[in-house]
Design a binder for these strands. Structure first.
Lengths: 234, 234
DNA sequence: GTCTATAGTCGGATAGAC
DNA sequence: GTCTATCCGACTATAGAC
């Protein structure tokens, strides 16, 4: 609802993360909604974690649901900002229709493993972001549209284009989308199923070198999956 | 809490699905908890959907949380019953240490694609079961322990053993577990990310032949991923 | 074992002073 | 814009009749 310029004088231009009640509320909301879900989060907890007053939620966002939407938009914008440079690079590289297999594989690796996997699995914010997104994927609500349109659809589509080129199949063949989906699954499972993996391997934290471990497996799997055009199974 | 024999006289031996307030409550609970999460489900809705009285929940299960635990146990038992025959088959087949690659691949396909994927993605009950399980994976609570111990750990471990044999790596190498995990991800994404896939492909239902479509892609991917022992990447 | 009625708590939203 | 105080509805659990 209301939206005004910051009144801080020490930082007149750059709007810092966490500045202003509105931003603090959104950031707190992402954490709490991610952890407890929409129904499990109380406005009192949300306000308290943000160091704000309870009444600030209806004031700034109209309602708790409005805050939820704002949080979804905030994540969508943040994810876009992280993914966009690579997405644009790969998109423009794909305009060249005579790329070699090796080059296509490199593009795929750059987009999905080096960028997407790293962003989703390990970036500082991603802990809460991912839970938020996974919840929306599972039970698509208002947030799903926001997130889907702004980033996910684009990454999904780009991944599918790469797969199609590599397997020499028309872009609209459903098998292409299914394959791209399966590859997304290989990445996202390390978020959604992390509890099971850590339990099995006796890990207590998902450290940087463990991410690299996972990334190298993903790279190899993708290379193998896309190693040759599809032949029909016997 | 209370647990007594059924009083119906028409079906004295077999306890039918849905018989008795207690069972109806559990079955309703799985649907509602899956759809709305623990906090989003109200005892009123739970009781109403089960055709039971509100007070039946504390009576039979002590509390709403008790009903939740019972639901987790019910799913664990049901999943076990579905998976166990195949799990035992594969486990006993693996006692033979000189299986050929082709035979190992067949076992993997039988366990993970024909059985696990089909169960998770398409069995009648699985719609609610999966959402329930995914929630627990994401935010491990009391239900996680129940589900993990009774089925998931066993399937995960068995899949890892197959992968280890195929890639000729020691069973306790973390790369084995990571690979097995990635494969699970390829399957589970068609549950957790189904909304995105259906949107992309313009599907409105996940039919039997679409499942087969997915299964054939999974089979092929797994075969490729495990096609040759791992060599270190440059 | 199942019901009604109700206790006791906590939720989101609002009113109105500042 | 931010605060306190408060309303009112919804929630879980219990008491007690049958």
């Amino acid at each position: 609802m209301a939206r005004k310029a910051e009144t801080r004088t020490t930082l007149p231009i750059t709007i810092q993360r966490g500045d202003g009640t509105r931003n603090r509320l959104i950031e707190a909301a992402i954490d709490i909604f991610a952890a407890h879900g929409f129904d499990g989060a109380s406005t009192r907890d949300l306000a308290h974690k943000a160091g704000a007053n309870l009444a600030a939620i209806p004031y700034h966002f109209g309602s708790k649901a409005g805050l939820y939407r704002a949080a979804a938009q905030y994540i969508a914008d943040g994810l876009s900002a992280k993914m966009l440079p690579t997405v644009l690079e790969v998109e423009s590289a794909l305009e060249n229709n005579s790329l070699e297999r090796r080059e296509l594989l490199e593009l795929l690796d750059r987009l999905m493993v080096k960028k997407f996997a790293a962003t989703v699995l390990a970036s500082a914010e991603a802990d809460s972001w991912s839970y938020f997104i996974v919840r929306e994927q599972m039970r698509p609500g208002e947030g799903f549209e926001i997130l889907y349109r702004s980033v996910m659809a684009r990454v999904q589509r780009l991944c599918a284009r790469l797969v199609g080129r590599l397997l020499k199949m028309p872009e609209d063949d459903p098998r292409i989308s299914i394959r791209a989906m399966a590859m997304m699954g290989e990445i996202l499972i390390f978020r959604t199923g992390r509890a099971g993996l850590m339990k099995r391997l006796g890990w207590s934290r998902f450290t940087e070198d463990r991410l690299e471990h996972v990334q190298s497996v993903l790279s190899e799997n993708f290379q193998r999956i896309l190693s040759a055009p599809v032949r029909e199974r016997p």
